Computed example of a mutant assay.
Amino acid sequence: MPEVLGPTVDDQTRCVHYRTPLDVIAIRFRCCGAYYPCHRCHEESAGHPAAQWPVAEQDTAAVLCGVCRTELSVRQYLAVEACPRCGAGFNPGCRLHAHLYFEPDPSGQR
């Protein structure tokens, strides 16, 4: 089971920055390969700048469901609003921060 770094507040990957019932994912950062609950946790804990996942690597497992611990590829995560394995809903507001983690697809496709 992947370890989630940073200031988590529970075992479902919620952190001190984002802790609503829907904040149940962690992102594996491309720069270091480590999972963090959010961009702010990485910024405060990692000691290096974050790097976005390029569009060409969207099939890489980089998102962890904090409820069932299923790893999703970037492409899978961007296409769903809930975990395909356990049905746990993901925070739709996370889409506002997607550009911090994932390079935007210039074709507009997910």
Results as ranks from 00 to 15, higher is better:
58 Q>G: 12
85 R>K: 10
36 Y>C: 06
47 G>F: 10
26 A>H: 02
60 T>N: 01
31 C>F: 07
48 H>G: 03
59 D>T: 02
67 V>W: 03
5 L>V: 00
65 C>E: 01
98 A>Q: 15
107 S>Y: 13
32 C>N: 09
43 E>F: 13
91 N>P: 06
85 R>W: 04
51 A>P: 00
20 T>V: 04
59 D>M: 13
12 Q>A: 14
51 A>V: 11
3 E>A: 14
80 V>M: 01
23 D>F: 09
25 I>K: 06
109 Q>L: 06
17 H>L: 03
40 R>N: 04
39 H>T: 05
40 R>I: 07
12 Q>F: 11
93 G>D: 14
48 H>P: 04
58 Q>K: 02
16 V>D: 02
74 V>L: 10
81 E>R: 10
36 Y>Q: 09
24 V>K: 09
102 F>I: 13
69 R>F: 06
72 L>A: 15
99 H>K: 11
53 W>V: 04
12 Q>P: 07
105 D>P: 02
57 E>T: 05
14 R>L: 03
40 R>S: 03
59 D>I: 11
19 R>L: 13
32 C>P: 01
108 G>T: 01
32 C>R: 03
47 G>Q: 13
55 V>P: 08
56 A>E: 05
102 F>N: 00
54 P>K: 04
74 V>R: 10
94 C>Q: 10
39 H>A: 04
52 Q>L: 05
62 A>D: 09
73 S>L: 05
5 L>Q: 11
18 Y>C: 01
21 P>L: 05
80 V>L: 12
94 C>P: 06
84 P>I: 05
25 I>H: 13
67 V>C: 04
58 Q>P: 00
9 V>M: 15
79 A>K: 14
35 Y>P: 06
47 G>Y: 14
78 L>N: 02
71 E>Y: 02
13 T>L: 08
64 L>A: 05
26 A>N: 09
9 V>I: 15
23 D>I: 03
61 A>D: 13
68 C>V: 10
26 A>V: 01
67 V>I: 04
44 E>G: 00
10 D>W: 15
33 G>N: 12
79 A>C: 07
110 R>C: 13
3 E>Q: 07
21 P>M: 08
2 P>A: 12
24 V>T: 10
62 A>H: 13
13 T>P: 15
